[in-house]
Design a protein around this nucleic acid. Structure first.
Length: 436
RNA sequence: GGGCUCGUAGUGAAGUGGUCUAUCACGCCUCCCUGUCACGGAGGAGAUCGCCGGUUCAAAUCCGGUCGGGCCCGCCA
């Protein structure tokens, strides 16, 4: 029976079998220490028998081993226990040395990211790299838990679509048995459709954007936490996003404390209620502070996103802040105008640690108004394949609703404290990387 | 797509006209080492300095082109 390395303290004085990867060798002459890595962590094994040491000659980090030995308490060992008098069995010998080191922190300098990703397959075995993605798994776990508690049902929408719909960003086109198809640039229509089914629905799925963006925060494929809520108003919608972020931060900080510590992640500061500030207020503050005039601009500059984050951290003790009151003139056709102030759309961006991690909006749920906005704003044909099924949902009754899309990798990046969103992606896809 | 910038052993770096027959660290190989945990010590292998062309008595170093990266902006999650 196999024992996991993190359970060794429960087996002191007993013989166990452990299995895993050779992580480190230290030969001290009459004494040899090796570290074995399995899914639960690392174990130290002390080898004195020269014949056992000899079994590892010529074998590299990554060699798969089965080790039988006795668990011994020793204060000098990391974790206080180690395996003595081992008998080694080489399950998979590895003779080629790894191209990058996996027992020391990997280089994350921007200039060297290409190497990091070129050897991603084995680099991910590095304990620190692994920890980034354990945290990411924890984020998804925490999100699901929050959604479940709030009465949401998880679904998956198709990523192969007939044509571009949402507009704005470029889409990937592909051959679909002789017809042209596209990869989903958003789950927008499907999550709205699902409001008619589940009322509260969410999915955690990939999104594809064929944009020639070359920044530290863009990829051509990324994971969206997409949610849509029926019978909600704008305030209530922001409360849900607020609750989700709090839920994620609280769960992950608690359940992944060791991983975050190993990555030297700064604990996240969140106000109990995430502050809300209007776009124009941000422009005013930024203009006053920097002398760069952004008053009246219809979007936030990246530098303003960083600025308002710092401002919010100092002024409100919150590293997340909602930006509200976006001009209706820039809204998408499915967005809803504010009834009180029709010059604004009911939309918000959530800025966290200097980047936009979510866009939130109320949707136009009234069939006639939506048809009108589709024609005037998107210049869309209601009979086109990309729109007609979507519109059915409204024709046959959708309540007032709204939703949001949150970028999983951006969120992971910022929680962990990485410079580039790609570092928070297992196998990143960008304008010039399609492998591994 | 626009602007800026970088390319030297497997990995990370130093070297910006001649002393470069290219330096250092990690990794790798051989040997020594009984408490390592970034183990230590001695020795060794490993690089047509991204590629092509040019300037020069002389190019890793200067110039042009090319290929491959990175950062910022636009766009967004």
């Amino acid at each position: 029976m196999r024992t996991l390395t993190n359970k060794l303290p429960e087996h002191i004085g007993k013989n166990v079998t452990i299995e895993g990867w050779l992580h480190k060798k230290r030969l001290l002459g009459g004494l040899t220490f090796i570290n074995l890595r399995d899914r639960s962590g690392l174990a130290q094994i002390l080898i004195k028998d020269k014949d056992e040491v000899e079994k590892l000659r010529g074998l590299q980090i990554g060699t798969v081993l089965r080790i039988k030995g006795s668990v011994t308490k020793d204060e000098r060992a990391p974790g206080g226990v180690e395996v003595h008098d081992p008998e080694l069995e080489v399950i998979v010998p590895v003779t080629d040395e790894p191209p990058i080191e996996i027992d020391k922190p990997l280089n994350h300098k921007p200039d060297n990211l290409d190497t990091l990703f070129e050897y991603r397959v084995i680099g991910l075995r590095n304990v620190l790299e692994t920890n980034i993605f354990k945290v990411q798994a924890g984020i998804k776990e925490a999100a699901r838990q929050y959604f479940k508690a709030e009465g949401f049902t998880e679904f998956n929408s198709p990523k192969l679509l007939p044509e571009a719909t949402e507009g704005g960003s470029e889409v990937f086109k592909l051959d679909y048995f002789g017809k042209e198809a596209t990869l989903a640039q958003s789950a927008q229509f499907y999550k709205q459709i699902m409001v008619g089914v589940f009322e509260r629905a969410y999915e955690i799925n990939p999104t594809y954007r064929a944009e020639l963006s070359a920044t530290t925060r863009h990829m051509t494929e990324f994971i969206h936490i997409d949610a849509e809520i029926g019978f909600v108003d704008f305030d209530g919608l922001l409360d849900v996003v607020d609750g989700l972020l709090h839920g994620i931060i609280e769960d992950v900080s608690k359940n992944y404390e060791n991983e975050l510590k190993s990555l030297r992640a700064e604990p996240v500061k969140l106000a109990s209620k995430i502050p809300r500030i209007s776009l124009e207020e941000v422009h005013e503050l930024y203009t006053k502070e920097t002398g760069t005039k952004t008053l009246g601009e219809k979007d936030l500059r990246p530098d303003e996103e960083r600025f308002i984050s710092e401002y919010s951290k100092e002024k409100f003790d919150s590293e997340a802040i909602f930006i509200v009151d976006w001009p209706a003139s820039e809204m998408k056709f499915y967005h809803k105008k504010s009834e009180k102030n029709p010059e604004f759309a009911e939309r918000a961006d959530l800025i966290f640690r200097g980047v936009e991690i979510a866009t939130i909006s109320m949707r136009e749920h009234r069939y006639k108004e939506l048809l009108d906005q589709l024609k005037t704003i998107a210049k869309g044909d209601p009979e086109a394949d990309g729109f007609k099924y979507y519109l059915q949902a409204f024709k046959y009754g959708l309540p007032p609703h709204g939703g949001f899309g949150m970028g999983l990798e951006r969120l992971t990046q910022k929680i962990v404290g990485l410079n580039n969103v790609k570092e928070a992606t297992l196998f990143p896809r960008d304008i010039n990387r399609l492998t591994p």
